[in-house]
Write a protein that binds this DNA or RNA. Structure first.
Lengths: 168, 168
DNA sequence: CCATATTGCTATGAAAATCATAGTAACAAG
DNA sequence: CTTGTTACTATGATTTTCATAGCAATATGG
């Protein structure tokens, strides 16, 4: 079992350093992204993040220990779990949204296009990138939006799943 | 020189994965925090993040290569640089704020107290944690706020600097 | 009832990154 | 001419990560 460093970073008052002790790791964030995308099973998460089983096991264990994730039994004999976000995990949403906005704005070639489009439920229009709805100006929360993958991104995910299945 | 993995993560449309290929690392985020805190010299950054020289060198190099940071010569003979955020680096601010808010809310014991207090310049009152000013309701940006360290956090930083100086 | 498939992991070893510690180069100050 | 300062680089032990393989428990198909 692989362990993950969380250092003595919790010996600082700085909330950024403390948060990073929990989520300061690429795999961890990718796993969280999948949980927000409603992938709850181990293999889905593994396939869509591209991590090795150990990476995923270790992150899920740490996320559970840190209180962001719970295991939920969906099948005994054989014992099988689904992974779900807790309140603490769900509260991470704004960080993911900010990261997404920054990634959209600064980390891609313009011809790539969007991966997701969000609709602000309360106003029914596109939510845009910022923390505030582009269409109506209200602050947006997780439960106030519906996300929809663009066909291109959906295709990419389907392909990844197929590739994953084929390789085993 | 240590290299940092950025994988083939830029072979996805997902902006989160793409962003993580750049900033998905604890040291990188801590370095960015210091740059936002206006620590521009190598040793300040090293002291306040607690990283080894290699860690810091490698992150600064990668951040420069990724376009978030520029070196600025402040002294020739011997050649000395200061590190500054570019526009792309500055644009990372909302992520850091979201992370800070989550860290404040979920990663500390209540008795610890705040590290920073921000004031919303345009309304003159405390900005609070969210992406929207707690006092006046307007969305807050980096240049719309002044941050002030709490005495306790300032003390912690001073102590870290002293300890660093003493150990060399 | 037997073979194959499915799910959710664990095991192994090579390659890479990290950490602690020490050292260096170029000057400046006393 | 000795000591201090700044910004690193070098070294080697320890840890992590990655790729690949394997396995246990059951479901499914014939």
């Amino acid at each position: 079992m692989t362990k993950i460093k969380d250092n003595t970073t919790d010996q600082t008052l700085c909330p950024v350093a403390r948060a990073e002790a929990v989520v300061g790791d690429r795999w961890t964030v990718l796993v969280l992204r999948e949980l927000f995308a409603r992938s709850h099973r181990f293999e889905e998460i593994q396939a869509q993040t591209g991590g090795t089983p150990q990476m995923i096991t270790a992150r899920l264990k740490k996320l559970e220990a840190d209180g962001l994730v719970t295991r939920r039994v969906y099948n005994k004999h054989p014992l099988r779990h689904e992974y779900h976000l807790t309140e603490k995990g769900t509260a991470f949403f704004p960080v993911l949204m900010a990261l997404r906005a920054w990634g959209e704005a600064w980390c891609k070639s313009p011809r790539d296009g969007r991966a997701m489009n969000y609709t602000h439920i309360t106003c029914g229009k596109p939510a845009g990138l910022g923390p505030v709805c582009e269409s109506c100006g209200e602050p947006v929360r997780r439960d106030d939006m519906v996300g929809e993958r663009t066909p291109k991104y959906q295709k990419e995910r389907d392909a990844r799943w197929e590739a994953f299945k084929a390789s085993r």
